[in-house]
């Protein structure tokens, strides 16, 4: 019974690890650069979950000060992840701009085809 509780209590972390690993798999296994960038995004969002889930207190509330409440969830991870989300979209935009540029030059966004073209020259 205790084992079962431990599994339920760590379910957040298991899903976080799964999302992380799925993102890693997409980045390594897929040659298409847009899909790789989406994989990178998955990896990034799993880190949001990794930071936010330990900050939650069961029975607590969102960290907005109000005389009616005493228990607040931890505000610090929220702040850090707010920064991470915005930086994440900036990286995504830059990566996609590079993809557009590569596609103009090579006519494809597939890594294998690009490597083959470079070797032919």
């Amino acid at each position: 019974m205790i084992e079962w509780q431990a599994i339920v209590g760590h379910y957040n972390y298991y899903v976080t690890v799964f999302l992380m690993v799925a993102g890693l798999y997409i980045v390594i296994a897929h040659g298409n650069m847009i899909k790789s960038l989406i994989g990178l995004g998955l990896f990034q969002t799993s880190v949001y979950l990794l930071y936010i889930s330990p900050g939650k207190i069961v029975g607590g509330t969102a960290p907005i000060i109000d005389p009616k409440y005493t228990d607040y969830s931890n505000p610090l991870p929220h702040v850090l992840i707010l920064t991470a989300i915005v930086v994440g979209v900036a990286t995504l935009a830059l990566g996609l701009a590079l993809v557009v540029r590569i596609s103009e030059e090579y006519g494809t966004v597939d890594e294998d085809e690009i490597v083959a073209m470079d070797q032919d020259q």
């Binding site: 900050g55 939650k56 207190i57 607590g60 969102a62 991870p77 929220h78 992840i81 707010l82 989300i85």
Partner: peptide, 10 residues
């Protein structure tokens, strides 16, 4: 998870 600001941004 009570992260309302992060949820809005996401």
């Amino acid at each position: 998870l009570d992260a309302v600001d992060v949820a809005m941004t996401e």
